[in-house]
């Protein structure tokens, strides 16, 4: 795994699913209540792999984390904080997200959002943006993390 520091974030070049999980677990160590993590990337790139490792790295019992594409939202009660795991793949109108409790999530939990682009301008600016993309090979990926200045500082040592 290679890591490159960029102006407003970092870039990882990962070779396998294990690397993706490692990065997710490291991120889990530095997040706190009210953080919003926007996780984007194409179908099949490994967003749910990232989410599963992230959720299970937070203190608490081992959870079965499945793709939330169908139920759109799954809430995981971890020992210290709740995680709202959203998947807006099926969202038709950004405003429908309000019915699904995004405000509640933003205010009192950690929000982990797959397909955040479907939220359009309802996605808060203070989100940490993570983009996973394909890199030629079957298992190789680029994981880019970027966000506000505050986030840049927080993620520097991941």
């Amino acid at each position: 795994m290679q890591k490159k520091n960029k102006e407003n974030g970092i870039e990882f070049f990962v070779e396998s699913e294990k690397d993706t999980e490692l990065i997710a677990r490291r991120l889990a160590k530095i997040v706190q209540k009210k953080d919003i993590v926007a996780l984007s990337g194409d179908l099949g790139v490994g967003k749910t792999v990232f989410a599963r490792a992230f959720i299970n790295a937070l203190p608490g019992a081992l959870e079965e984390v499945l793709s939330p594409s169908f139920p759109i939202l799954q809430i995981y009660e971890r020992a210290k904080v709740e995680v709202y795991h959203f998947d807006f793949f099926r969202l038709e109108k950004p405003e429908d997200a309000f019915e699904l409790g995004i405000e509640e999530a933003f205010g009192c939990a950690i929000s982990l959002i797959e397909w955040p682009e479907r939220l359009d301008f309802f996605l808060p600016k203070k989100s940490l943006e993570i983009e996973i993309s394909f890199l030629g090979g079957v298992t190789e990926r680029v994981i880019k993390m970027s966000g506000s200045k505050v986030w840049s500082k927080r993620i520097r040592n991941i």
Partner: peptide, 18 residues
């Protein structure tokens, strides 16, 4: 037994989408 990641119907949907 259960799926470890995606449900089968979901994969059909996503293949159709692609």
């Amino acid at each position: 037994g259960t799926t470890k990641d995606d449900a089968l119907g979901e994969v059909f949907d996503k293949v159709a989408k692609m």
